[in-house]
Design a protein around this nucleic acid. Structure first.
Lengths: 154, 154
DNA sequence: TATTGTTATACTCTATAACTATA
DNA sequence: TATAGTTATAGAGTATAACAATA
């Protein structure tokens, strides 16, 4: 039988602020911090940060996309995408193919390794989502997604 | 009368990925990006980033708190808090008072300027929240907050 | 021994301006 | 002129290790 312990310890209870706790933005940020921490643990083996994972997903589902449109899809600026693309290419998860009609652009494609890694990552992400959504049922999940899409859409 | 324009342009329609769009984490991150962009515009005048605003709020509502507990409340590590505290102190928005019983710690308090700035910021943040929540009614807002708190709480 | 604040360091993400080579 | 990719740079957030002063 575990020793009874105080539920509230004045030193352990984290300080709060009514002002902050009333803000959707603040509560959203805290939820995201928890989720990203779990995502990070989930992907440590594969060495895939959120942006790298998202890039692979967009490229797989839009084969031949160029860097400008990939950045546009993810809200990452062209300039900031360059080292990320370089990282994925150096790991041979993607290929930069030349475009016949336009010698400025690259057509991005997953390599076979990229397909495999993304498949593995997708399975892990499903587990991760199941974990973070374990306190929520399917109908609530749908409600949450719909509310999230409405946020900041004015 | 404005010239008719295409609703959908194959070059302008951002690429998507069914895999990504199905993930709560991804949709959450996108919502947060929109919200923080508006927050940033809201606070540009006051030169208050989200962390600085949150620090002022916690200090106001927990006068005398020390840096370790402030960091704990916000999920910011002691080491990373140091320059932020320094910034607020340099702007004379907070005071670091010595603690009678403990010569290692500082008791943090808002200055009069800090109180004023935080009051101004709080009003702006309420407007900001009204803006980002404009597509959502009060009952939905409550639902959203409750769902957010359940996320990652397994 | 443990804790508070601190320094130093490194990595990631983000924002901006400017360049090159093509179109 | 405009666009695709690139380079360079700076700001901001985050993580870790180690230190001095104090408890």
């Amino acid at each position: 039988m575990p020793k009874a312990r105080r539920e509230v310890d004045p030193e352990e209870t984290a300080a709060t602020s009514p002002l902050l706790e009333g803000l959707v933005g603040y509560r959203l940020r805290r939820a995201m911090t928890r989720i990203f921490a779990d995502f990070h643990l989930t992907m440590t083996d594969l060495q895939l940060r959120p942006s790298l994972f998202a890039m692979l997903a967009i490229i797989r589902d839009n084969p031949g996309i160029n860097q400008t449109n990939l950045g546009r899809a993810l809200g990452i600026q062209r300039a900031n995408l360059v080292p990320l693309i370089g990282e994925l290419a150096a790991r041979e998860l993607i290929e930069r193919r030349t475009v016949p009609g336009d010698r400025r652009a690259f057509a991005l494609h997953l390599s076979l390794d990229g397909e495999r890694i993304l498949g593995d990552a997708a399975r892990r992400v499903q587990d991760h989502e199941k974990r973070i959504l374990s306190a929520i049922d399917l109908r609530e999940r749908a409600t949450l997604l719909s509310l999230l899409d409405k946020l900041g859409s004015a």
